[in-house]
Design a protein around this nucleic acid. Structure first.
Lengths: 139, 139
DNA sequence: TAATAAAGATTACATTTGTAAACAAAGGAC
DNA sequence: GTCCTTTGTTTACAAATGTAATCTTTATTA
């Protein structure tokens, strides 16, 4: 019963900091988020606690202040959330949606090259048309 | 005060049907969703009402049964929600996230070609590196 | 036209989320 | 060792969301 829960937008901001630092104390998280947001200290603490309850973070409580560490890799979390969103889109629209993301994202030359290769590869086995499944009997 | 609200996952399912049909009666929506989900009739009606309150749908009430029509285009809604999600990702990770989406999505040959062209174009002006902004003082 | 069926409106209630104050315990300063 | 100051814990409360029952009105049919 792995109890997969989702991370909310606010919680995600906390995780980003901890992922980037590798681990962090609550003070570190609070200092950074107080610059990025208007959240009060207590709010940020609440988010940290909820992330622990949801098993996205653990606290190393052997010393004070506690050190919080991620229990989920950033890449895995990103994978989860982007695919989760795409799962609810009409499948005919996914190509364009990806185009929209490319348009609006700052991507490095290296990543662009990788994406082009990946697409060239995918093109081989791609079908000419993708059918809309919006009215079909399963999500 | 355009009061932009968001569409929840459940509401999104209702919209997909109405977008695909162009317009629909509650019965049409209910018939389809009862096959896709375990939702009760009343639940689906609630979703329709909330979508009206959020200004994503209008009812043409000149005849019974009412005919519900979208007030937002599917493409616009998709644009909103995918970009909204990407806004909260570490910008270094966006390229890979797009790769992940491409991997997991069924995209037509035509769309793949468009994406390749788009990327080739974007490559010209792309920088070699994208900096992580996760610890910076604004979201 | 009276009874029934269908569609729409109102109300409900638990859980999650955003947002935070208040309280308690541990560590450091004097 | 006592007093502040961090840091962590508990409690709070409104809004949003998932999920639905019930009540009311309109339409259909006998």
């Amino acid at each position: 019963m792995a109890e997969i829960q989702n991370m909310t937008k606010a919680e995600w901001q906390v995780m980003r900091i901890i992922w980037t630092l590798g681990q962090a104390t609550s003070k570190e998280v609070i200092d950074i988020l107080e610059k990025k947001t208007t959240w009060k200290t207590a709010t940020i603490k609440t988010l940290i606690i909820r992330l622990q309850k949801k098993n996205f973070l653990v606290a190393d409580e052997s010393n004070r202040p506690y050190i919080y560490k991620p229990l989920i890799a950033e890449n895995d979390a990103i994978h989860e959330s982007v695919n989760d969103l795409f799962d609810s889109l009409c499948c005919m629209k996914k190509g364009k949606a990806i185009g929209d993301l490319i348009e609006n994202s700052n991507i490095s030359k290296g990543d662009i090259n990788d994406l082009i290769l990946q697409l060239q590869n995918k093109r081989e086995k791609a079908s000419y048309e993708v059918e809309c499944d919006c009215l079909e009997a399963r999500l």
